[in-house]
């Protein structure tokens, strides 16, 4: 494997966003790119990352390899990079280590680190292609604020999507609260758009603890996409350049 990423910062932000959910995981490398799928310990949430080969320049992966990496170790090494550094990931066949090289774009500084790999026996789940009943795009900062605000009142949030808009509501010991968003187009700042694409009304309840955790990825993308269907996991997607993505799936609360 040899994969050069224009911004080391991208991988750093991905790792910062997921490391409180998953600790040790396999980075599956093949000629289409670098993928990661991992559940949290309680099997409530699933992280799915895809960094497509097009996100790298150049990208070369001659044989499929799984790089088993402890994310705390990876985070430590990624913190050694400067924010504008270019990152090259390298691994040999049947590797013991993954090699990370940071290059400064405007100086001759080159730093190099090896991280020891681990054997991780990871369960891989099949995620079915789903036509969701509601697809909502909204500013990622807005979603983060809603989740944090409602978590002050309750541990769970009901998300209801109708023709009128999307309503986030909660009920707790001190009282209740709700935030409703309607479709909204801002020509000057498309990052502020709220788009709601609905085929049938949806109402589901989710744990806010996990949603707040997912929102650590807000720095990766100005917009977040929420995809919902009744009685299936919520998809929270942060799109990255070149069709790469960081996705989180969250199992709904049941038995309301």
């Amino acid at each position: 494997l040899e994969a050069r990423l224009e911004q080391a910062n991208l991988l750093k932000k991905v790792v910062d966003a997921i490391k409180d959910l998953v600790q040790d995981c396999n980075f599956d490398c093949n000629d289409s790119g670098i993928a990661l799928q991992a559940m949290d310990n309680s099997h409530v949430a699933l992280v799915s990352m895809m960094l497509k080969s097009e996100s790298f320049s150049p990208f070369r992966c001659d044989r499929n390899i799984a790089l088993g990496i402890n994310l705390t170790s990876l985070q430590k090494v990624l913190r050694c990079a400067n924010s504008e550094d270019i990152l090259t990931l390298k691994a040999e066949d049947a590797p013991d280590v993954v090699n990370l090289v940071f290059e400064s774009a405007d100086s001759d500084r080159l730093s190099e680190y090896d991280i020891k790999l681990m054997d991780i026996d990871q369960e891989h789940l099949g995620i079915p292609e789903t036509e969701y009943a509601a697809n909502i795009s909204m500013p990622s900062a807005e979603f983060q604020k809603i989740c944090r605000d409602l978590m002050a009142l309750s541990e769970s949030v009901a998300i209801e999507c109708t023709k009128e808009g999307v309503k986030f509501s909660c009920n707790g010991d001190i009282g209740s609260g709700s935030v409703t968003l309607r479709s909204h187009t801002n020509v000057d700042k498309p990052e502020n758009n709220v788009e709601i694409d609905l085929t049938e009304p949806v109402a589901l309840t989710f744990s806010l603890k996990y949603l707040v955790n997912f929102c650590k990825a807000s720095g990766l993308s100005g917009q977040v996409k929420l995809c919902l269907s009744n009685e299936v996991p919520l998809l929270v997607e942060y799109g990255l350049a070149s069709n790469s993505y960081l996705r989180f799936y969250l199992a709904p609360k049941i038995g309301d």
């Binding site: 099997h43 996991p233 199992a251 609360k253």
Partner: peptide
């Protein structure tokens, strides 16, 4: 009350 669903009961083996 409401219980928490398990992601494995929705997404099967590949």
């Amino acid at each position: 009350g409401s219980g928490q669903g398990n992601i494995k009961s929705f997404f099967g083996p590949p």
